[in-house]
Design a protein around this nucleic acid. Sequence first.
DNA 1: TTATGAACAAAATGTTCATTC
DNA 2: GAATGAACATTTTGTTCATAA
Lengths: 121, 121
Amino acid sequence: MERQPSGFLVKQRAFLKLYLITLIENNHLYGLKLRDLLKEEFRGLGYRPNHPEIYKALHDLIEQGILFQQKEKKQGTIYQEVVYYQFTEQGKEKAEAYKKQLKIELERCLKLLEKAIKDNF
Amino acid sequence: MERQPSGFLVKQRAFLKLYLITLIENNHLYGLKLRDLLKEEFRGLGYRPNHPEIYKALHDLIEQGILFQQKEKKQGTIYQEVVYYQFTEQGKEKAEAYKKQLKIELERCLKLLEKAIKDNF
DNA sequence: TTATGAACAAAATGTTCATTC
DNA sequence: GAATGAACATTTTGTTCATAA
């Protein structure tokens, strides 16, 4: 038995995956830095993503064959190995498909919220 | 230990409570009819609220002291007792406060989605 | 202390069942 | 079949812990 989603708003996980794709497209970043960036980005809107959510989203993207991990030494004085992310061979393409899908979903959600404001106020 | 919400999007329950308040302000309706109305209302946006969610939202509003139940015979030929909802003494006032709060929340969510579209596309 | 991730716990929500008319 | 609601199951998401450097 497949569980039917009710079609309410987009899930946090999907939302984060979209941002992670974009961030990794444009920057060389690892898990916690991504979290810090997003946290900062959304500070004004009261959204504080936590680190396990970020990691789970990244792992999802790996499972989807979009990203792979690249362990590297963090630049700086102290030795620390961190996990960077890169697009796989077909990753960019798959990422584009995912983004396309999310765009439609976000616009649908936008309409839902706009409708709610219109209908109730 | 209180669990901290991350501050992502509004919960379905809260969203429904807002609509239920508005619908009950303007109509004499019972549970399943409210569900049918909302289902129809959101058909185009792919959101299909299910009946337990509606009932739980209604029960929440009762617990908050906003509504109370009024059992009545459904109009029509066949005898059937259904549960209508009305505002309590202080219900209207409390409902207004709740709506005010939700308006702020919905506008915050709107900004989150708009930002996501702007940042990723 | 920073970083990664698993394990765990709780909340949100969807499905099924019981009951009544 | 329509209506109400509880019970149950799953998913989503938040907290804590383990491990390493």
